[in-house]
């Protein structure tokens, strides 16, 4: 019982600390999560961590939900809830506080310039994460062709991206 309590406390403190250094997004701190989960606490192997990460990517919703799977692995449903709350609660409050502050400064010229200046970093990093995921996914020529086709489809067509995801799943089932 007290061992469970220890693990829950470690999940809470560990993911709370990680959430507050996650500048750039949850994916930025995956190496740090790996260190916490595999090296520091020995909750699972490297391979198991990679599997959970792939599972969270395949599921709908924010990829940061991988912390929920880690929590589940360590301490079941309670572990999942504790890990997700630690990862989202304090960071969320911070975003809320910032948003309140921003509405008080609304229209300030320096704030508008700052917001416009962050846009290219945001969009550049979307490209970058797409390229990194494409490299990991390109196990053969067909997978690469799926990525290229899906890029063009989402860029040039107004149809839902669900079509290309379903297409990718079907081609994967048939040929990969």
């Amino acid at each position: 019982m007290s061992e469970d309590g220890d693990a829950l406390g470690q999940l809470a403190i560990g993911f709370l600390a990680i959430s507050l250094i996650a500048v750039g997004g949850g994916i930025a701190v995956v190496p740090e999560m790996n260190r916490l989960v595999v090296d520091v606490h020995g909750w699972m192997t490297d391979a198991r961590f990679a599997q959970l990460f792939a599972l969270a990517q395949a599921a709908p919703g924010p990829n940061v939900l991988v912390v929920g799977l880690i929590g589940w692995h360590v301490a079941g449903l309670t572990g999942m809830l504790v890990a997700i709350l630690a990862m989202t609660g304090p960071a969320g409050l911070l975003a809320y506080g910032f948003s309140r502050l921003r509405s008080r400064l609304a229209g300030a010229a320096w704030l508008r310039t700052m917001e416009k200046g962050l846009v290219p970093v945001a969009v550049g990093l979307i490209f970058s994460s797409g390229i990194i995921l494409a490299q990991a996914a390109a196990v053969n020529g067909l997978a690469l062709a799926v990525t290229v086709g899906s890029t063009l489809f989402v860029w040039r067509s107004n149809r839902s991206p669900l079509w290309v995801l379903a297409g990718g799943a079907a081609l994967g089932a048939l040929f990969l």
Partner: peptide, 28 residues
Amino acid sequence: KAVLAGTAAAAAGMILGTAARITQNLKP
């Protein structure tokens, strides 16, 4: 595993296509 691999390849393209769309619309 095969279905997950195919979906991952398509999802990477979805992210790249979205970035291309944003860039095109913003005309930086």
